[in-house]
Design a protein around this nucleic acid. Structure first.
Lengths: 167, 167
DNA sequence: TTCGATGCAAATAGTTTGCATTCTA
DNA sequence: TAGAATGCAAACTATTTGCATCGAA
């Protein structure tokens, strides 16, 4: 089950602080949950559940993929974790950031650019003025061409399948 | 396999015209392909492959889901068909429109609003000015709250699973 | 010592693919 | 009648779930 509507972000510095939050929420602090948090803090950006179960390529203890998904859901519900969807491919998870990041993803080079919501307020304003629509780009990012790829010739799978690098 | 980067849209009025295009592309005109096109022309909006295989609820001949996917890919490659992704849930397919529709989808009521690309030029302009980014919303739509749902309280699965109605 | 969390395996959804057969051109 | 497209089944990816066991509080 995908997470219920996520509550407000709970931003913490490190695993220890996250553990405090978990306890304060009545959640149990298991080894598996520590691993999930440790991997997320060590990751260079949003990562798929599979990489978490892999211990980010073996650098951390492995855990069961099913439990990883369950823990991610739990951690997202309390606000410690967020996830987003980059085009096709698996969902990507990250620790919640101070300002609920939003994203621009290049369909050509798959670069992911994280921006703070205020940076998109002008865009959001236009959408609201023109369509009465209040957009959010934290869960389903803006897709298109980054500056570097603006004029690159289209290639197979520009609507692609693989998940991206991070900016 | 998802479609390779789709070529320019080929907009036609009806199945007969689509068949012409297929022939002109050296594609064979099979019963199964006629069904796919017939269903797409009869559909009220973008529909999942499954509904096409179902003959849109039995109103049209059924066909094999695997073949439907293959045909959709082929038809999309020649430009007769387009598909988009609404949040979670299956991809949705439609006959190519005159102006390569883009979409706004409400994460709350799941309404899908199709707009022509020029209507989003102001939004696109801001994105280009502010980030050097050229956005496109035809394949991965803008997600947020429509005017009606702007103030509705969040509910479970606002990041939801089901696919939406059409505007 | 209890109830929440885990691990494992099976189930599910969406989509793709291999292969023998069928049918279009 | 050659090669493209089909139908069916199996494979695959991402994710969820049931259940017996384990472990944190």
């Amino acid at each position: 089950m995908t997470v219920a509507y996520p509550g407000p972000a709970v931003v913490v510095e490190d695993v220890a602080a996250a553990v405090e939050v978990m306890r304060s929420q009545g959640l149990r602090v298991s080894a598996s949950r520590r691993v999930v948090l440790t991997v997320l803090f060590a990751a260079p950006g949003p990562v798929p559940a599979e990489q978490i179960a892999d211990g980010l390529g073996g650098r951390f203890p492995l855990s069961d993929l099913g439990s990883v998904y369950r823990n991610l859901e739990t951690l997202e519900r309390v606000g410690l974790v967020r996830h987003l969807h980059l085009g096709h491919g698996p969902g990507l998870y990250a620790v919640a950031e101070r300002d609920n990041q939003e994203y621009l993803v290049c369909e050509h080079c798959h670069a992911v650019r994280a921006v703070s919501p205020t940076d998109l307020d002008a865009v959001r304003g236009r959408l609201r003025d023109d369509f009465g629509f209040t957009a959010s780009f934290g869960h389903f990012p803006i897709v298109g061409r980054c500056a570097d790829c603006r004029d690159a010739p289209p290639r197979d799978h520009d609507h692609g399948h693989e998940h991206g690098r991070h900016a």
